[in-house]
Computed example of a mutant assay.
Amino acid sequence: MSKTELESRMLKLNLAPPVMKPKEARTRPSRNTKLAASKVTGKANGSVKTSRGKTTARKSSQTSVKSDPKTAGPSIFSILITRQLARNYVKRFRQGRQQQMIDRPIPPTYQLEPKARFDPLLVKPLIKKVVDARMRTFRYQQTTAALLSKILATECKDAAKTLDYSRYKLVCQVFIGEKKDQSASISSQCAWDTNFDNVVTYNWQSANVYCIVTMHGIYQQ
């Protein structure tokens, strides 16, 4: 059936002839527009288009480990820094004490007896005050116990020096240990003058830690 016959029949049936739309011109996209479109879709969908036309999805896995500050222990770097700071503190403290002894030499007095004898009843309360203040919040650790014993020995001697025991040499020993169902015995022996020299001992204990401080007062003639 030709076109004219179809139009004549449609006119008889009071139908409008179909309107033929002109064909649209097909435009072929260039290569640059294809690459730009593939980049945009790849970023949006997380995929990469290969040279063969296959798309491969990007796989990105990120694992994050969050450490709880309450349960995480100190790092090795912080432990080393703490040790170095403690050594520097002890070194500067000793140098300062040595410089004080050099600046204040004791002149000879030509006296055979001390003005005030070393009294354990007066020294023990001072030692107790120093040890109780330091050991009240102490938690035993091997590294910190060694440093604390040095600090306690120095502070106990400084406290005893406030009683003005001139020409007395004070020797202080501090023992700090952890209680683990064991027994420990500490003894000392020395040769001294029973008329002027004396010793005092203070024993501090808790549920997990013990601290024993022994101080000798030796008169220098």
Score class of each variant (00 low, 15 high):
144 T>Y: 02
145 A>D: 11
147 L>K: 08
148 L>N: 08
149 S>E: 06
150 K>C: 03
150 K>S: 08
150 K>F: 08
151 I>H: 04
152 L>I: 14
153 A>M: 10
154 T>N: 09
154 T>R: 04
157 K>H: 01
158 D>A: 08
159 A>G: 05
159 A>F: 02
160 A>W: 01
161 K>G: 07
161 K>F: 08
161 K>E: 15
162 T>Y: 09
162 T>Q: 15
164 D>Q: 07
166 S>L: 08
167 R>E: 06
168 Y>C: 04
168 Y>V: 00
168 Y>D: 03
169 K>P: 01
169 K>C: 06
169 K>Q: 06
169 K>H: 09
171 V>C: 03
171 V>L: 06
171 V>T: 06
171 V>A: 03
172 C>D: 01
173 Q>R: 04
173 Q>S: 09
174 V>K: 00
175 F>C: 07
175 F>D: 04
175 F>H: 07
177 G>A: 11
178 E>M: 15
178 E>D: 03
179 K>T: 09
180 K>C: 12
180 K>Q: 15
181 D>Y: 02
181 D>M: 14
181 D>W: 03
183 S>F: 07
183 S>D: 14
184 A>D: 07
184 A>Y: 11
185 S>A: 12
186 I>E: 04
187 S>E: 13
187 S>N: 14
189 Q>K: 15
189 Q>L: 14
190 C>I: 11
191 A>L: 15
191 A>Q: 09
193 D>Y: 09
193 D>S: 10
194 T>K: 03
194 T>G: 07
